[in-house]
């Protein structure tokens, strides 16, 4: 079994190395950066920054489903008829929308560490515990994302007329099936612009995770800047890389919006 995983991860790493946009065979740094500080390999910082780029992108991509799922359920809770559920959902959004992302990150990072340490101490293990920065970042950013996401989805839910649910009932559809076949497609279409904004914010918030030591774009460029004393160039590159990520996502989102809009054409 472990052999299979090793083979899989090796294969993934190989594919990643091929399609790497910065240091791959067709990478930007490979072609235009050789001989400069951005050369790939041991001569320059290109491959380190490329790795940071990958970490930032994968953190954002890994956080998105977590945030979306939690946000969906919090939105459901906030529009339910049950008072206690609504209250619980509102407390959730109030807290996580009001806290600075950096503070949430620290609270999750150190808090998880303390919790795990206490838990292990009761089991009988004594020793230092390191929480994975990627996981801590994923939890903290996912929680913040879900708090905003629940608001976006809630307003999208409110935009769907009640007749749609009744139509589902009239067709004899199950509650879950009504949600899946009738409500969700419309919900996505209405909520997509708001979710696009949230995704951009998430992408920018991932830069904060460098503070707890995850080797993302900002941390790698920061290390390079400290070592080479070319701070402006390297932080400029970090800015450009974030801009590239933002541009790619805006292209993807406008394509998504167009494809969801197809359903309402001809009205």
């Amino acid at each position: 079994m472990s052999g299979l995983f090793a083979a899989l991860s090796a294969g993934l790493a190989w594919i990643g190395a091929i399609i790497d946009p910065l240091c791959g065979p067709a990478g930007v740094f490979r072609w235009f950066g050789s001989g400069t500080l951005l050369a790939c390999g041991d001569a320059g910082w290109g491959d380190e920054i490329a790795h940071g780029f990958l970490v930032t992108a994968s953190l954002a991509v890994a956080t998105l489903p977590v945030g979306l799922v939690i946000g969906f359920f919090v939105a459901l809770a906030k529009q339910s008829e049950e008072k206690s559920l609504r209250l619980a959902g509102n407390i959730y959004t109030t807290i996580f929308r009001g806290l600075p992302e950096l503070l949430t990150l620290f609270i999750v990072y150190y808090g998880l560490q303390i919790l795990v340490q206490q838990f292990l101490a009761t089991v009988g293990y004594e020793g230092a515990v390191e929480i994975n920065a990627f996981v801590a970042g994923m939890i903290a950013l996912g929680v913040v994302f879900s708090a905003y996401c629940s608001e976006v989805l809630l307003s999208a839910f409110k935009a769907i007329p009640h007749g749609q649910y009744e139509a589902g009932d009239a067709l004899g559809l199950h509650r879950g099936k009504t949600m899946r076949l009738i409500i969700l497609p419309q919900l996505i279409r209405i909520a997509l612009p708001g979710l696009g904004n949230l995704w951009m914010a998430l992408l920018k918030d991932t830069a904060l995770v460098s503070v707890i030591g995850l080797p993302d774009i900002l941390r790698q460029t920061g290390i390079a800047a400290r070592v080479t004393k070319h701070a402006f160039e390297f932080f400029g590159i970090a800015c450009v890389l974030f801009l590239v990520l933002a541009m790619i996502s805006s292209v993807v989102f406008s394509a998504l919006e167009r494809s969801t809009k197809r359903a309402e054409a001809g009205r």
């Binding site: 951009m200 920018k204 918030d205 991932t206 830069a207 904060l208 460098s210 900002l218 920061g222 800047a225 004393k229 070319h230 701070a231 402006f232 160039e233 932080f235 400029g236 970090a238 800015c239 974030f242 801009l243 933002a246 541009m247």
Partner: peptide
């Protein structure tokens, strides 16, 4: 507007605080 809205605030801060030190 695109630059300042498209990049993280922390990167901009580093660019100015550490980056301008090289000038």
């Amino acid at each position: 507007v695109y630059f300042f809205r498209g990049t993280p605030l922390i990167t901009q801060l580093f660019l100015i605080y550490y980056g301008l030190g090289s000038f």
